[in-house]
Simulated scan of single mutants.
Amino acid sequence: MQSYKRRHRRIELVKIMIVITAVLLLVVLIDMKMRPSVETMTAYQARLYAIQTINDAVAKELDAEKVTYDSMVKLSTSADGMVTAVETDMLALNRLKVGITNSVAQELKKLETADLKVPMGTLFGGQMFTGRGPLMGFRILHVGYVQSEIINQFDSAGINQTRHQIMLRISININALIPGYSADTEVTTNMCIAETIIVGTVPDAFTKVTGDNGSTISKLNDYRADNALE
């Protein structure tokens, strides 16, 4: 009788172990399937929060410093009023860069203690689940340093017109933490802090090169002033 009870207990114990193993295996399989999607969406949500934080910090700093193009750039002109040189005030630009970098770093620290919430369905991806389900809290940790760079960018804005933009590039590494998951991502954003259009002399005529399959000579279209008057 006792041997029967022992054998019955062993059988029950084996059944329990099989059920526990099956449940654990199912949890592992589900986690393996969901983890890439959850980590990707978590990183995406973290980037949204980080970019919004950076934009707000930069806007506040620019407003506080009353930044204008003329306050950072001096245009030298000739006697006839044509622009001959563009001189940037590097001291003012570096001071602005340091102020913005510190402001961004301070705002990012607030995210580490902020009560950030996102619907669980959003993390799983798919239009059907986006914005649905219970809210899941997560934190954003700032990893490393805030890297910033001032870039002077010149683009054509028309015939003998050049657009000068002073761009600020900010790069950070962040880590998004939610229960059971962690996602690292890099955020890089470019912001224009000042710009102007430098106007030169408009020529009396110009030539346009088309992209057809003809010869080089046939690609040249001569838009001469005398033709425009005919």
Rank of each mutant, 00 (worst) to 15 (best):
Q147S: 11
T101E: 09
T88C: 00
V14H: 07
I16G: 07
Y44E: 05
L123A: 10
K66C: 06
T216L: 15
E195K: 12
P179C: 00
G81V: 14
R7D: 09
T113L: 08
G121Q: 13
I198H: 00
K5A: 11
Q2D: 05
K109T: 10
D80P: 01
V73A: 06
R224A: 12
T130S: 08
R163G: 00
L111F: 11
G99V: 02
V28S: 02
M32A: 13
R163N: 06
L91K: 15
I150R: 08
L141I: 07
S3M: 05
N175D: 01
P36A: 05
Q52R: 06
Q165C: 00
M128R: 07
S37P: 02
F154M: 13
D204Y: 02
D115M: 14
A225V: 13
P36V: 09
V187H: 11
L62H: 02
I11M: 13
A57W: 01
I159C: 01
E112G: 10
A157R: 03
P119Y: 12
R35V: 06
A22Q: 03
N190R: 04
E195G: 13
T210P: 02
G126M: 07
R7T: 09
D204W: 00
V28E: 04
Q45S: 11
M1I: 10
R163C: 00
A205T: 07
T113P: 01
P36I: 11
V202D: 06
D115N: 15
I11N: 06
E12D: 02
S103K: 03
Y223Q: 07
V14N: 08
V19M: 08
G133I: 10
K5W: 05
G126K: 04
Q147T: 10
A57S: 14
K109C: 00
N190Y: 01
N227V: 13
E149M: 04
G137K: 14
N221Q: 10
N221S: 08
L116V: 08
